[in-house]
Every structure is written in C-alpha cells, then in structure tokens.
C-alpha cells in the first residue's frame, strides 16, 4: 500500500468515512515506522475529533486518566463479541500510549495539581499512592492490566523542563488567548488567558 492511498484513507477517516478495520488493514499493510508514526498522529486527531479522549497536551496525566476512565469495563464472561471488546481495549491502550509518547511536555505546577485532582477523583481510594508524586520524582502515570492483555506503565519526569519547541507553542497559545474577545462573550477569553499565566 503506497503512501498516497494511506493518506486518502486517513483523510477519509478524518471525514468519518472510513472505519476502524479499514484503518487497521492500512496499518498492517504498511508496517513501516514512518507510516506507523503518521497513523499514530492521525489517530490522535481522530480520537480528539470524536471526543473519545482529550489529546495529550499540557496535561498528559489527566488525559490518560480520562481515557482509562472512559473505557468500558472489560467483560470476562466471553459472551457476546469478545473480539470487538478486545480491539476496543487495545485501541484505547494504544491511544493512551501515543498520548504519552507524542504528548507535549507542558508540565507546570498547575497542571500537576490538576492531574492529582483527576487521579483522585477517578480513584478516591488510591490517595496514598498518588499523594506525593512530585516529591518522589518520576511517577507511574497509569497502570492498567485487567486480563494481562493491555498494560501501560509510563514513567514520567515531573521536573522536565519545557523544550524550546513547547515554549514556542505555549507563547502562541498565550498570544491567541490574550487578544481581545470577539464581543459576544468578553470575560470568558480573559479567564482562559488568566488560567495560562501561572507556570
């Protein structure tokens, strides 16, 4: 399968005209790292477009939590369509991995607070393990292993500095947010801008 047809399929995906299986066929046929990478990026865009999970961005931890929280409970009974369930689970796990690998490391104190909040709300009983990830340095973001099929344990360096690339993007996000509102709702953009100021 050549690059052009891959792109066509990808654009069909973006227009909601292709299904998951078609995409998987393309991926299987491709196999090259570059094609895989392109697919991964579009997978993020597609997932975001479908609102399936909040793409990585500034708060990977919360994104991961959200993705995991939204995952339907795996069925162990084997009744119904186990194949589909399996695909769904792997697909979600893959999207989470991509989120972490391709995510921009926009960490700041603020984002960490949010991450802890999200984790706590998702797992109120697990406060002991998520209480002090900053003090403990690299922390495990998420770990999910319901039946030994899909595992995710990604160490993340909370003290990671912004790269020049991330800083450039953040500058633009701020500039976008700080411009005057469009008139219909003037305070909301200012609130948005204000939430970007603390680092």
């Amino acid at each position: 399968m050549n690059r052009e047809s891959l792109r066509e399929t990808l654009s069909a995906v973006m227009d909601n005209e292709a299904d998951e299986l078609e995409l998987r066929r393309v991926l299987a046929a491709g196999g090259e790292p570059e094609l895989q990478a392109t697919w991964s990026r579009y997978q993020i865009a597609r997932a975001a477009m479908h609102g399936e999970y909040f793409a990585p961005g500034l708060n990977i931890a919360a994104g991961v939590s959200a993705a995991l929280a939204e995952e339907p409970a795996p069925s162990r009974s084997g009744v119904g369509a186990p194949l589909w369930r399996g695909i769904g689970r792997v697909a979600i796990a893959a999207s989470v991995t991509v989120a972490v690998l391709a995510g921009v490391r926009f960490y700041n104190q603020d984002a960490l607070d949010g991450a802890q909040m999200a984790q706590q709300s998702a797992q109120p009983a697990a406060t002991a393990s998520s209480a002090a990830p900053i003090a403990q340095g690299p922390a495990v973001l998420a770990s999910y292993n319901p039946s030994g099929e899909a595992t995710l344990a990604v160490p993340v360096d909370h003290e990671a500095q912004l790269t020049a690339e991330d800083q450039r993007l953040l500058d633009y996000v701020r500039q976008h947010a700080r411009q005057a509102g469009s008139g219909a709702e003037s305070t909301l953009p200012h609130a948005r801008a204000a939430s970007l100021e603390n680092r």
């Binding site: 793409a55 500034l58 708060n59 921009v104 690339e165 948005r192």
Partner: peptide, 25 residues
C-alpha cells in the same frame, strides 16, 4: 482560532499536536 506562519528553520518540529483543555494546537 489563530494561524501563525513563520519561516522553517532547523530545530523546529515538523509535526506537533496538542490539546490544552478547550484549545487545540
């Protein structure tokens, strides 16, 4: 939404995507 255009230079990423709450980049 805003569109920023700048000359390509070494060190810039080729493809980058992220999402900050409601804001896509």
């Amino acid at each position: 939404f805003s569109v920023f255009l700048e000359p390509w230079r070494e060190g810039l990423s080729i493809d980058q995507r992220s999402q900050l709450g409601p804001t896509a980049a």
